[in-house]
Amino acid sequence: MAPFPRWLPQPRLTLVLVLVWLLLNNSLGPGHILLGLLLGWVIPLFTQRFWPETLQFHAPLTLLRFVGVVLWDILVANLTVARLILGQPGQLKPAFFEVPLDLKGEIGISLLANTISLTPGTVSLELSPDHASLLVHALDAPDPDALVQEIKERYEAPLKKVFEPCSPSS
């Protein structure tokens, strides 16, 4: 991907900022668009130091499908957890388990951890200091190993494809 010009270091951030500004004002008036463009241009210039690396999306379609899968899982898992809460809390089998990580980058790992927390029924607790595994707590997991497999196949594989396609698989 070609580096972006100096006067516009983060075009995607600019786009997001303009969109957020327009949503915040809830209008499409020309004044708001102008002010939004001005803010979207100035803020990345001033916060350049917080963005040492530019993000690269290698497989946009995979990312889109990933978002769809996560939204669907949130819906399904919500119903499951609602049933668990309304049922017998004494019969729950909560479990701590570790998910070994193939992802290396910080963005990939944080996205994976957030995905695990967002889908109800599992919460990511702690990243090991060497970034090799993630401690996860599940509300009801009779078989933690199957859950680990599911997380790795369903969430980690697409994230790895999007953010780290060329790194060797461990």
């Binding site: 089998k93 701590f96 570790e98 957030n114 990511s124 607790l125 702690e126």
Partner: peptide
């Protein structure tokens, strides 16, 4: 939401909040 859940869990692990459960935590 995930960020605050993560921080709460970290705080609870740090304070060693007791838990019920069959499995011992690895960490």
């Amino acid at each position: 939401a995930p960020v605050s859940a993560h921080l709460l869990a970290k705080a609870a692990l740090h304070l060693k909040v007791p838990r019920v459960g069959q499995r011992a935590a690895p960490g």
